[in-house]
């Protein structure tokens, strides 16, 4: 456990150098946009500037997630296939611990980014739109016939599971890519495409099965998803994410344990 903590602290420190200023920057921009909204009510000529900042802030919030995902992949790729791998693989820890420490760091940053994004949304929504947003969400939950607390909890679990499963597939792809002597990034990308195709195939199979359970056809039915079915789809997807994530993790662990090929 001590080694895992040390590894996590190392990865957190390495990534925090970029991620922390990124998250704080996006929050600061959202706060500044909020300030501009208030100011534009007093000085209407600032409305255009506020609108511009609002659009930039919204893009930056989405971009923050994209950056965290891409830079986490880069961090892992660099650590496991380049000269930096000499440090990690010199340590007396199993490859599974390397994988889980990278994964844990990534999930922690995703949670931080998620919390920051919620903060940004609340800051970016104009004051007069809060009530409207509440009404829209109530209508959505009413149509879906599902309790909002249960829906939000399920959504958070699903997002975390899918994000984790996605990163595990990336780890598996990189573990396949490192077997190549040259062009490891290209090989990893090709491996990811292969894994993605298998993942999509499994998703379609799962949906066909679920739809048939409810007496519907995936390709021809146009009915709105009922509560039970929606829940089934969400639970089915979660199970699939766990299955794909675990398999990918095991593949990556096996390849890094038995076929490590640092150049």
């Amino acid at each position: 456990m001590k080694l895992f903590n040390n590894l996590f602290a190392y990865h957190f420190k390495c990534t925090a150098r970029v991620f922390l200023p990124l998250i704080l920057g996006v929050l600061l921009l959202a706060g500044f946009t909020k300030g501009m909204e208030l100011l534009s009510k007093l000085l209407p000529f600032l409305t255009a500037l506020y609108t511009f900042l609002l659009i930039i802030s919204a893009f930056c919030t989405i971009g923050m997630f994209l950056c965290i995902i891409l830079l986490s992949i880069r961090h892992f790729f660099r650590n496991m296939t380049s000269a930096h791998g000499y440090f990690l693989f010199m340590l007396p820890v199993k490859p599974s611990m390397h994988l889980s420490s990278h994964l844990f760091t990534y999930v922690i940053w995703l949670i931080f980014a998620g919390a920051a994004a919620v903060g940004c949304v609340f800051l970016l929504i104009p004051n007069n739109a809060y009530a409207q947003l509440g009404t829209i969400l109530d209508q959505v939950f009413a149509v879906l016939q599902i309790g909002e607390n249960r829906m939000i909890t399920l959504m958070i679990v699903m997002v975390l599971l899918s994000a984790t499963a996605f990163m595990c597939t990336i780890y598996a792809a990189i573990s396949i890519g490192q077997l190549a002597k040259e062009k490891r990034a290209v090989t990893s990308f090709a491996a990811y495409i292969g894994i993605y195709m298998i993942e999509q195939l499994l998703s379609v199979c799962m949906l066909i099965v679920l739809f048939s359970i409810f007496g519907m056809d995936l390709f021809t039915s146009t009915a709105v998803l009922a509560e039970n079915m929606l829940l089934s789809v969400m639970i089915g997807s979660s199970v699939l994410y766990v299955l794909i994530g675990t398999t990918s993790f095991l593949v990556a662990n096996r390849l890094f344990s038995k076929h490590l090929n640092l150049i």
Binding site: Y86, F89, M90, H259, L260, N261, L262
Partner: peptide, 9 residues
Amino acid sequence: LKILAGMLT
């Protein structure tokens, strides 16, 4: 050396 250090199989 890489094999002995566990960097290569």
